[in-house]
Lab assay of single mutants.
Amino acid sequence: TETVELHKLKLAELKQECLARGLETKGIKQDLIHRLQAYLEEHAE
């Protein structure tokens, strides 16, 4: 999932992505995007 794609997701979809990775789901859309980006960078293959 790339940065551009995360911005296209709806808030509910971002929350699902966070939940699937065991991440916090509180906060505004930008918080969730930032959290997912950090996770994806950390776990990049």
Rank of each mutant, 00 (worst) to 15 (best):
T1H: 01
T1S: 11
T1Y: 04
E2S: 10
E2P: 09
E2D: 14
E2W: 09
T3G: 11
T3C: 04
V4P: 12
V4N: 09
E5W: 11
E5Q: 02
L6R: 02
L6T: 05
H7Q: 14
H7M: 08
H7C: 06
H7A: 12
K8G: 07
K8S: 12
K8E: 10
K8F: 03
K8W: 03
K8Y: 07
L9R: 07
L9N: 01
K10R: 11
K10Y: 01
K10L: 05
K10E: 13
K10C: 13
L11K: 10
L11V: 09
L11C: 07
L11A: 06
A12K: 08
A12L: 08
E13L: 03
E13R: 07
E13A: 07
L14S: 00
L14V: 02
K15N: 01
K15P: 00
Q16E: 12
Q16N: 09
Q16W: 06
Q16F: 02
E17H: 07
C18A: 02
C18K: 00
C18Q: 00
C18L: 06
C18R: 00
L19T: 13
L19I: 09
A20C: 06
A20Y: 02
A20R: 12
R21Q: 04
G22Q: 03
L23Q: 01
L23F: 00
E24T: 09
E24M: 08
T25V: 11
T25C: 10
T25S: 09
T25A: 10
K26A: 14
K26W: 13
K26I: 09
G27P: 00
G27S: 02
G27I: 01
G27M: 00
I28C: 15
K29W: 02
K29H: 04
Q30P: 08
Q30M: 11
D31T: 06
D31F: 01
D31C: 06
L32C: 04
L32P: 01
L32G: 02
I33S: 04
I33P: 02
I33A: 06
I33Y: 05
H34I: 07
R35T: 04
R35E: 05
R35A: 04
R35H: 05
R35D: 03
R35V: 03
L36P: 05
L36E: 03
L36S: 03
L36Y: 02
Q37D: 15
Q37F: 03
Q37A: 11
Y39Q: 06
Y39E: 05
Y39A: 08
Y39F: 04
L40F: 12
L40M: 14
L40N: 15
L40D: 15
E41N: 09
E41H: 07
E41M: 09
E41T: 12
E42W: 04
E42V: 12
E42I: 10
E42M: 13
E42A: 11
H43Q: 09
H43S: 11
H43E: 13
E45I: 06
E45Y: 02
E45C: 08
